[in-house]
């Protein structure tokens, strides 16, 4: 039916796929990284604000608008664990913190959630990486992770 070398090629491909799948399962199981979490829509997420739960846990409710993020500057201490809840007030925007693997779409009528731990101090840019009109290239906000003294 099929030449045996073709069969071998399919077999090797299947093995590589299994290895990749195992690596993905491993890294997701160990809560190292994951895709965005699914949050049912709720109007309360659409008002931009920052909640401090305790000394190192923050909730950021970010709303992307034509052509800035609100809040546009987020101050958190080093070692902070931040839950980002992202939605859009108009068209589809992107919400990308490249250095920390935060890669989400801000969609009207949808709430996106991901959690990230800021272990190193510094300014982390939040870039809009989905075309959202003429001001798209100006859309960038900041997470400022500075020394224990917040401000």
């Amino acid at each position: 039916m099929l030449d045996k070398y073709e069969g071998k090629a399919i077999g090797i491909t299947a093995i590589i796929i299994m290895v990749f799948l195992f690596s993905l399962l491993y890294v997701t199981g160990k809560q190292k990284t994951d895709v965005v979490e699914c949050v049912p829509y709720d109007k309360t997420y659409t008002t931009p604000r920052i909640n401090q739960i305790d000394s190192t846990t923050y909730q950021v409710f970010a709303v992307a608008k034509m052509w800035n993020f609100e809040p546009s500057q987020i101050y958190v201490p080093v070692g902070a664990e931040v839950d980002f809840f992202v939605t859009s007030g108009d068209v589809v925007h992107g919400f990308n913190i490249a250095e920390k693997n935060v890669n989400m779409m801000a969609v009207y009528g949808g709430i996106n959630k991901t959690t990230v731990k800021f272990t190193e101090p510094g300014i982390y840019k939040i870039t809009c990486h989905e075309y959202c009109g003429v001001g798209h290239q100006n859309m960038q906000a900041e997470v400022i992770v500075n020394y224990p003294n917040n401000y």
Partner: peptide, 24 residues
């Protein structure tokens, strides 16, 4: 050639996998 292709595939894939873990 196929084995080289598979090797290149694994190198590229685990390269990005490493970058992902480094950023987590």
């Amino acid at each position: 050639f196929f084995m080289l292709l598979i090797t290149l595939c694994v190198v590229i894939w685990y390269g990005i996998y490493y970058i992902m873990l480094e950023r987590a």
